[in-house]
Amino acid sequence: MGLGAPTGLVDTRAEYQHVFDIYVPIAIGVFALIVIATLLAVLVYRRRPPERAARWYEHDRLEGGYALLLVATVAFLLYITFTAEHRVDTVAARERPGLVVNVTGSKWEWHFNYPAYGIDLYSGAVGRQDLVVPTGEAIRFRLTSVDVIHAFWIPQLRYKHDLIPGSVQDSTLTFSRRGVFAGQCAEFCGLLHSDMIFDVRALSPAEFTTWARSQQAAGGGAA
């Protein structure tokens, strides 16, 4: 797969879209089928005298066959899901990251630390600095929290992961195109949960290097 990711890196957005494009049409088809069958049955068998109601009440072979069809559907959906999940969770974790960012959640602020550059950025209830990332490179986010559970969600990437105090968990993500994307805390974390937001600015690798140099020159990134 690796749909839409020219670099061959795992693209969470593409993986999501791949599974979405299989699940949602099936769901819409099933919904339409059941609604139509139900409404047709109601229309056809409406208002006949009660004595005319049929008396048959079971057909085990038909129902068994139908259950087997459902089992096959489940197997197919799980195959799709497990292969995509393998890429998002396992293959991505094996990639060599071009950049590591330590993400620390606290009430109600994000702290992004770039250990390779000595840059610290903050975004949340007190002010907003963008999380700046290069495109086309695997970025390893090392997620942790100092107080309660938060969740690091970038809707554009169709991915989130929890920040749980007492653990550091890695998520490896790739931005395939330049732009500014919204990000926010997805796990309710108390009073100002709705203010725990940030923007991601994805730059080309060259732009990113320039930005990082200028930040370093400005002395650790108090932008």
Binding site: E15, Y16, T81, A84, E85, A151, R158, Y159, K160, A186
Partner: peptide, 10 residues
Amino acid sequence: SPVLDYHAED
């Protein structure tokens, strides 16, 4: 599906 839930959760 975990892949879809990573986006949909919360």
